[in-house]
Amino acid sequence: MHTLSVQTQSTAITEPRWVRYTLISITLIFLSLFLLIPLISVFTEGLRGGINKYFAAMVEPDAIAAIQLTLITAAIAVPLNLVFGVAAAWAIAKFEFTGKSLLITLIDLPFAVSPVISGLIFVLLFGLQGVFGEWLAASDIKLIFAVPGIVLATIFVTFPFVARELIPLLQSQGNDEEEAALVLGATGWQTFWHVTLPNIKWGLLYGVILCNARAMGEFGAVSVVSGHIRGLTNTMPLHVEILYNEYNFIAAFAVASLLAILALITLALKTFVEWRVQTQVLINDPDVAS
């Protein structure tokens, strides 16, 4: 016990032991109630009917269609927002121009909008009564209550993730290395590929992980534009909702547990990347090394 307290006390100034233990206990109880128990319940509820029913819920055709649609949606939304994020971060972090802070605020806008409204705006654009509604109907193109609408709404809600990870990262790295590459005769693209990209790869991955998690898990916005057509326009979260509302709790939680696993993988990757970035910053810090 004594050695433990020596290890933990890096400084003589801290709270009395009883205060520390009380605070730690309250924290653990609070987090268990609000985070841990809900997480565990997803798996136990899903397994309530035994392992066979659990897996049966996942291989059912509608579930498979939902999984496929979720993967397709993420596969379109994430790369698009990735390219945008890199372009936006390059313009914002590497150059000084008027209107920059306004641009940053506008990029963050989708985070401030309720998911329901994120869906609504696309209904207003492409729905039957929407601005392009009549024209789309005449051309026999269906965007709302169809896959394109789901993809659009997903792109909207995951829009800022990559950009907002990269902007501060690029800003903190300064322009020195890029300038050095240019002086050495590299072209703009060569500079970006060989110098900038390797330096931001972890931040990029971080943004992509978060963007992907949201893209696969988005519910509100997608719910508005989907039309809930089984096997066609249901993503995994929507499929969970339908099963739940039909009182098919075991199947609902079984599919939900897949999404929970995705969340756990996201958290694990995120923690790993954070650790990588931290150690990288530490060893790259010239003040520490010299």
Binding site: T27, L28, L31, L35, L36, I37, P38, L39, S41, V42, E45, P115, L210, A213, M216, G217, E218, F219, G220, M236, P237, L238, V240, E241, Y244, F249, A252, F253, A256, L259, A260, L262, A263, L264, T266, L267, A268, K270, T271
Partner: peptide
Amino acid sequence: IDALVDLPFALPTAVAGIALASIYSSNGW
């Protein structure tokens, strides 16, 4: 615990919704 704090960011809201509904219902945990 530190990693777990981000769970609400990572867990789809629908999943959180049904999980909370089931544990706080009158016969839930």
